[in-house]
Amino acid sequence: MLSLAKNLNLLVMFLLELGVLGATGFWGFTVGQNWPLRLLLGLGTPALFIAVWAVFGAANDARIPLTGLARVALEVLWFGGGAVALVMAGRLVPGLVFAAVYVVNAALRLLWHQ
């Protein structure tokens, strides 16, 4: 039963990762009234987040994998960025829920050494 919970927690982390990309893209498409800027931010912000995650955060596939406090800082900035993007796009409750799910997920990963 515990292994199922651990696997579900890893699934939640993956879904949170996708949620960050969706949230940052959503924010980008809601900024201002200038369509070219919205297009640039809506596509560029998730691309920037993808690049950072690929270089530093993608577990075994990262070019420069971070550990310890550096990994904690990366995750807080990455997932916090997703939550902040939702709040800045006018979606306060989804942003708070996103942050809360991340905190529970991170605590369980720490507890279970994932």
Score class of each variant (00 low, 15 high):
Val76Pro: 04
Phe29Lys: 05
Val12Leu: 09
Trp53Gln: 00
Met88Asn: 13
Pro36Asp: 05
Val55Thr: 14
Glu17Gly: 10
Ala47Glu: 10
Leu110Met: 14
Asn7Thr: 14
Tyr102Ile: 09
Ala23Lys: 12
Met1Val: 11
Gly57Gln: 06
Val84Pro: 06
Lys6Gln: 15
Val84Cys: 11
Leu16Ala: 06
Leu11Glu: 08
Leu108Phe: 03
Leu2Trp: 11
Val52Asp: 06
Gly32His: 07
Leu10Gln: 04
Ala5Tyr: 14
Phe26Asp: 12
Arg38Lys: 15
Ala107Cys: 02
Gly25Val: 02
Leu8Thr: 10
Gly32Ile: 03
Thr45Glu: 00
Leu110Thr: 14
Val55Asp: 05
Gly68Thr: 02
Val72Gly: 00
Phe14Ile: 14
His113Cys: 04
Leu92Arg: 10
Phe56Leu: 08
Gly95Gln: 02
Ala85Phe: 03
Ala58Arg: 08
Leu66Ile: 01
Thr67Glu: 09
Leu8Asn: 01
Thr24Lys: 01
Trp78Asn: 12
Leu4Cys: 03
Leu96Val: 15
Val20Gln: 02
Leu110Arg: 07
Gly95Ile: 15
Leu110Lys: 14
Val97Met: 08
Leu92Lys: 13
Pro94Trp: 08
Arg71Ala: 14
Ala59Gln: 13
Phe56Arg: 01
Leu111Tyr: 11
Val31Cys: 05
Met88Ile: 14
Gly32Cys: 09
Gly57Thr: 07
Phe56Tyr: 10
Leu8Lys: 00
Leu111Lys: 07
Leu92Glu: 12
Gly25Phe: 10
Trp35His: 13
Val12Trp: 01
Ala54Val: 03
Val31Leu: 11
Val20Ile: 07
Gln114Ala: 14
Ala58Pro: 04
Val87Thr: 12
Pro46Arg: 02
Leu16Asn: 02
Ile64Ser: 10
Lys6Thr: 01
Leu69His: 07
Leu96Tyr: 04
Phe98Pro: 11
Gln114Lys: 02
Gln33Met: 09
Leu66Gln: 06
Gly19Trp: 08
Ala23Phe: 12
Gly25His: 04
Leu4Tyr: 15
Ala85Gln: 13
Gly80Leu: 14
Val103Glu: 06
Thr45Ile: 11
Ala83Gly: 05
Leu4Ile: 15
Leu41Trp: 10
Pro65Lys: 05
Tyr102Asn: 02
Leu69Ser: 11
Gly81Asp: 06
Leu39Ile: 15
Gly42Asn: 09
Leu108Gly: 12
Asn34His: 15
Leu86Trp: 01
Leu37Lys: 04
Ala54Gly: 02
Leu92Val: 15
Pro36Trp: 04
Ser3Gly: 05
His113Ala: 09
Ala107Ile: 08
Arg109Lys: 07
Leu43Cys: 14
Ala5Lys: 04
Gly22Phe: 13
Leu18Asn: 08
Gly57Leu: 11
Gly28Ser: 08
Leu39Asn: 01
Leu40Ile: 05
Leu77Trp: 01
Asp61Asn: 08
Leu92Pro: 01
Leu77Thr: 09
Ala23Asp: 04
Ala23Cys: 07
Ala100Phe: 01
Ile50Cys: 12
Gln114Asn: 10
Ala73Gly: 05
Gly42Cys: 05
Ala100Ser: 12
Phe98Glu: 02
Ala58Thr: 10
Thr45Arg: 12
Ala62Arg: 05
Ile50Arg: 04
Asp61Lys: 11
Lys6Gly: 06
Gln114Met: 14
Arg91Met: 11
Pro94Thr: 13
Val72Phe: 15
Trp27Lys: 00
